[in-house]
Nucleic acid binder design. Sequence first.
DNA 1: GGCCAATATTTGGACGTTAAAGTAATGTAC
DNA 2: GTACATTACTTTAACGTCCAAATATTGGCC
Lengths: 185, 185
Amino acid sequence: MPNVPQAITVQYGGQVLDPSFDPIAEAHRQWSARWPGQADHMAAVTSVMRVQQLLLSRIEDTLKPYGLTFAAYEALRLLAFSRRGSLPMGKMGERLMVHPASVTNAITRLEQRALVERRLSPDDRRVVLATITAAGQSLVQEATVALNQASFGLPGLTSEQAADVAAVLRGVRATAGDLPAGAAS
Amino acid sequence: MPNVPQAITVQYGGQVLDPSFDPIAEAHRQWSARWPGQADHMAAVTSVMRVQQLLLSRIEDTLKPYGLTFAAYEALRLLAFSRRGSLPMGKMGERLMVHPASVTNAITRLEQRALVERRLSPDDRRVVLATITAAGQSLVQEATVALNQASFGLPGLTSEQAADVAAVLRGVRATAGDLPAGAAS
DNA sequence: GGCCAATATTTGGACGTTAAAGTAATGTAC
DNA sequence: GTACATTACTTTAACGTCCAAATATTGGCC
């Protein structure tokens, strides 16, 4: 039996989603009926969570051929950008804005694949310097090309639109105290 | 020795962040110098990741007194909104936009705390109905009041600003094919 | 020199997510 | 009525995040 006007479906999260229904819009309706003053805040937060999930999924698809997760990619990229190709673990946590334990975790995995090496700092023996290897350099270079070609999961947006997204979210970060004191608005 | 003009610090991720430095702005600079065409896309994506992290952190702080994570709260809230206080596991995954395994995980934990019960559907014995208990109802009610009072982690934003955030991200969702076909822009 | 608070990293535990594989139950087709 | 594909849920495994509690090393301070 041929399938009549079958609805187009969006794949995500291991299931097929009903394209005629938007869970976020539905939640906003529910909220408006009970706590109207906070409905927009709820929708904003839920939207951030959803978009994060979508983008992460697309990015990890792009990185999969290189055997990298997004977290691993970011760590590698940070090291590749650094002058000497190495940084203290703690510094990496600050730059990547993640917990020190997350850095330990990521570097351990990268080290097992010989993309990064751990070295003790000669200046301060408490410090561990993560150092990118030649293999790491070339892998991150390839992965970066792929991500750029995929526009980081946002191929449908122009640079202006992408800049808008960043600008609006910069406003959110500002109200959350996440920006330097004298940051331009 | 009294501390002279000490920089104000933002706590996050288990460490103190340098307030005079914005990692996202720095990454944008690095990108502009090498792949200028994609710098805004990169910054947009990184901003989404960062804001998601900030909001999740604030929300979970708010929920902590109730012993709920955000994932647990969302599952409970969804059931509380439903007509009969119960939904099939699969339906919950669709509405929450998460993988079925995540639902199994969340419901198992809620069930152990007697906030939810599992019942086999009388109609289809493959189906498991998650049902919110009276205890679950009152807990989610309290938690919702707390989240609304905290404006879902966005107390600094007006409703209009929050609506802007949601609108901009709705645009992103649209280009990603995450919205119903005939969704109003 | 010796004590002690701060700093840097790791370890272990709790949860979240996904993908892939396994187990039932349903339903359809022959 | 019997085989087979589909559907629903759970299980397992790999990673990610975080926090809190070790472990080392440094660096004042007396």
